[in-house]
Simulated assay, not measured.
Amino acid sequence: MGWLVVWSCLLTGPAQAADLVDLDIAPQELTTALELFSRATGMAVLVDHQLSSRRHTLGVQGRFTPSQGLNVLLSGTGLAAQYARADAFTLQPVRVREVPLPPGVTPGLSDSNYAATIQAVIQRNLCRSPLTRPGSFRAVLQVWIGRDGVVQHSRLVSSTGDLMRDRTLVNSLQNLRIDRPAPSSLRQPVTLLLLPDSSGKSMECTAGEGVSGR
């Protein structure tokens, strides 16, 4: 097992949690992106190379605190930061947070029925934008859903081939609410395969369903 260890010290010292830094990290392999992030922020990174090497980031551009920038960098990777201190972190696979169900609500669907509910909600969500409207691209997604039916994390396993679409797709899943609470037996993450029309198995949008202009 290999580890990526980056101890990056700036002349002004490690960045503090409240400091703002300019980040311009393009989409690329996560391992390389973490090295660039460490150099830009002065944060120490200790990461299992096997965990990060098979993943890609959609990058981060803009002015952020180091923790905010890291959250953007990790968006859609299925990984989360675990801080050893304010200026040092490791990465771990995301986990579903325990959240209480609304009073009087109990999950009653089987996993197979709930899978159909997930697909219907995500399809409706994707149909709201012409950029993510199903049928013109292929992608593999994973989502982690809390007991309350809210998508807590996502991972873009394979790109759609369009960076803007990738970002819109990942952003559209943040805090998306499934119509019903998740059954306790639901296996996480839930994997979704989006296929183009040519496959004959793609999701379909009804005419004008929730579609808005860019």
Results as ranks from 00 to 15, higher is better:
residue 194 L to S: 03
residue 121 V to F: 00
residue 196 P to N: 00
residue 117 T to Y: 07
residue 201 K to H: 12
residue 48 D to C: 04
residue 197 D to V: 14
residue 187 R to G: 08
residue 25 I to M: 02
residue 42 G to R: 07
residue 12 T to Q: 15
residue 123 Q to D: 03
residue 63 R to T: 14
residue 198 S to A: 15
residue 154 S to V: 02
residue 114 Y to L: 11
residue 103 P to S: 14
residue 66 P to R: 00
residue 166 D to F: 03
residue 24 D to H: 15
residue 180 R to E: 09
residue 108 G to M: 06
residue 97 R to Q: 15
residue 7 W to G: 07
residue 115 A to Y: 08
residue 214 R to Y: 12
residue 90 T to H: 11
residue 24 D to E: 12
residue 76 G to N: 09
residue 183 P to V: 13
residue 141 L to D: 03
residue 148 D to E: 10
residue 164 M to W: 06
residue 7 W to P: 13
residue 114 Y to Q: 06
residue 72 V to R: 12
residue 213 G to W: 13
residue 150 V to W: 01
residue 184 S to H: 08
residue 193 L to A: 12
residue 48 D to R: 10
residue 78 G to K: 00
residue 143 V to W: 02
residue 64 F to D: 02
residue 186 L to V: 10
residue 163 L to S: 05
residue 147 R to C: 04
residue 186 L to H: 07
residue 104 G to K: 05
residue 112 S to Y: 11
residue 182 A to W: 04
residue 42 G to P: 07
residue 117 T to P: 01
residue 57 T to W: 07
residue 169 L to Y: 04
residue 72 V to I: 14
residue 19 D to H: 09
residue 200 G to K: 00
residue 117 T to R: 15
residue 156 L to F: 07
residue 191 T to K: 08
residue 138 R to M: 06
residue 36 L to N: 03
residue 80 A to H: 00
residue 10 L to A: 13
residue 11 L to A: 12
residue 171 N to H: 13
residue 168 T to E: 10
residue 102 P to T: 13
residue 68 Q to N: 08
residue 125 N to S: 12
residue 52 S to Y: 05
residue 46 L to I: 10
residue 170 V to Q: 05
residue 16 Q to P: 02
residue 151 V to N: 03
residue 174 Q to K: 11
residue 2 G to M: 12
residue 127 C to P: 01
residue 169 L to N: 02
residue 93 P to K: 02
residue 112 S to C: 05
residue 38 S to Y: 03
residue 48 D to G: 04
residue 95 R to Y: 08
residue 56 H to W: 13
residue 123 Q to S: 07
residue 129 S to W: 04
residue 154 S to N: 07
residue 47 V to G: 02
residue 148 D to I: 06
residue 171 N to K: 14
residue 126 L to P: 01
residue 9 C to Y: 14
residue 120 A to R: 13
residue 156 L to H: 02
residue 207 A to Y: 12
residue 132 T to D: 01
residue 14 P to N: 12
residue 168 T to H: 11
residue 97 R to F: 09
residue 92 Q to W: 02
residue 106 T to Y: 12
residue 48 D to H: 08
residue 141 L to C: 06
residue 211 V to S: 05
residue 60 V to S: 10
residue 96 V to L: 09
residue 96 V to Q: 10
residue 166 D to C: 03
residue 99 V to F: 04
